[in-house]
Design a protein around this nucleic acid. Structure first.
Lengths: 197, 197
DNA sequence: TTTTCACTTTACACAGTGTCAAGTTGACAT
DNA sequence: ATGTCAACTTGACACTGTGTAAAGTGAAAA
């Protein structure tokens, strides 16, 4: 949609993306992004009003390139509620590594910068909706565990699937992605499904 | 132990603690702590070499005052493995709100500052050990679910009980502390125990 | 009385963000 | 060829927050 129009802008976004993705030892500064974009630091401000907006635009660019919304939505068409839960956990889990670099930078900013907070919440709303939808399916089928309200279940699933939890298990504790996905699916099954078949 | 000796130092720690606890809209600066301690900013550096060390000392002071290690250890003497799991989840859950302010500041620093990272890991090691111990009990009783190794179970429990997850549910989603504790106990039960009685 | 300790005041270096103003450069229109 | 416009560059600077350095104060200990 909005891509392809402005080559410099896109070069900046790609540079920011790859710097954030690779981590490159610590915080990514405006001057780093400028250097990687082969542009002066000041010129960044001709394209983005501030660092927060640049990061936000990077996230959107990422979502656009990977068609996150499309992929996540697609995962919801699986057959039964429990299959949908499995598919949903997998779809989102596979997406986390892709956005992790950018997400980390945005998470770090959201404590200070209200705009970054808003952007983060906006980006996370698709995931929240996915959680709610899956839980609603389970509820409709009577497969949702008795002790959780629909809202509680959605909150809990969202927390379970948070980037932070992924970070803790995958990065800090060194789990493989496959192990993470499998155990999250199993944990979700046991936590939310009425019958543990 | 180390308290009571140096009144100014303790005044600083108390000031830092209360500022961090109340959040007070955003990051707590050295000058904020100085003002709250009724001391000059520079004098802070006579007591602590840098901000990271001050925050770390604040955490230790907090642990000392609340006797976290004692309390956490005590929770492990419940009867059965499942009772111990419940008690452990509750003990740590009740402690999170106490340390939340300081923890948040330390978590924000640990991306940049390796000393802050080390301090955070050090402080969390007690919790990790608790998780491992509880899981080991379950395993010994044959109550641990089959699809998880002892290490995986400990990692997962630790992630489930992370400050970030508490923050997400309690602060972001507005859960009450009681609801958080109950649902975490239930979730832990369903996730880790073989028989869902 | 002198020394020492805990602290104050003032000043400054440094990093990183964001702003401002005065160029430069190339494309395109006339 | 000339003028204009947009995109970009260069250099300077304000601001915030951390951390360092040095000289001074005041009270209590020796």
């Amino acid at each position: 949609m909005s891509s392809e129009k402005n080559p410099t802008r896109e070069r900046i976004l790609k540079a920011a993306w790859s710097l954030l993705e690779s981590g490159e030892g610590g915080a990514v500064r405006m001057s780093d992004i400028a250097k990687a974009s082969k542009i002066s630091r000041q010129a960044l401000y001709l394209h983005f009003p501030n660092r927060a907006d640049l990061l936000i635009a990077t996230t959107r660019y990422l979502d656009e390139v990977h068609d996150i919304d499309g992929r996540l939505t697609k995962s919801r068409k699986a057959g039964s509620g429990s299959a949908r839960l499995r598919a949903w956990v997998e779809a989102w889990s596979e997406y986390i590594p892709v956005i992790y670099g950018v997400a980390k930078a945005l998470m770090a900013m959201k404590d200070d910068d209200p705009e970054a907070l808003a952007a983060w919440n906006d980006r996370m709303s698709a995931v929240r909706e996915g959680c709610s939808a899956v839980v609603a399916d389970l509820k409709a089928e009577g497969a949702l565990v008795g002790h959780l309200s629909e809202e509680e279940a959605a909150d809990l699933l969202f927390a379970l699937l948070s980037v932070r939890t992924w970070e803790e298990l995958r990065i800090e504790r060194g789990w493989t992605q496959a192990r993470y996905v499998n155990l999250m699916q199993e944990t979700a099954r046991r936590t939310f499904l009425k019958l543990n078949s």
